[in-house]
């Protein structure tokens, strides 16, 4: 059984906080297609660590400010 990713992101909010940056503009700056940005925003695609860093760098924030992973009791530290 394929488990959907639990990673959530704040890309949409960050885009609006950065002069309402369009998905196309973010895609150009990250070096991916607009469809990939849409898929990440909608939680249909989890980017690679490298792409995640590139997205965070565009917004000049840390990785944790863009992507979040829920705390679950019992998870190994």
């Amino acid at each position: 059984m394929v488990k959907p990713t639990q990673v959530t992101n704040a890309i949409r909010a960050l885009r609006f906080a950065h002069d309402e940056m369009t998905q196309a503009e973010l895609a150009d700056r990250v070096g991916v297609t607009r469809q990939t940005i849409i898929a990440i925003e909608q939680g249909r695609y989890s980017p690679s660590l490298e792409m995640a860093f590139r997205i965070a760098r565009v917004f000049r924030v840390g990785l944790d400010d863009v992507f979040q992973y829920p705390d679950t009791e019992g998870d190994p530290l």
Partner: peptide, 10 residues
């Protein structure tokens, strides 16, 4: 895969 995602396994 393009429409629904789910091609990545975790």
């Amino acid at each position: 895969a393009y429409r629904k995602g789910g091609f990545q396994t975790w």
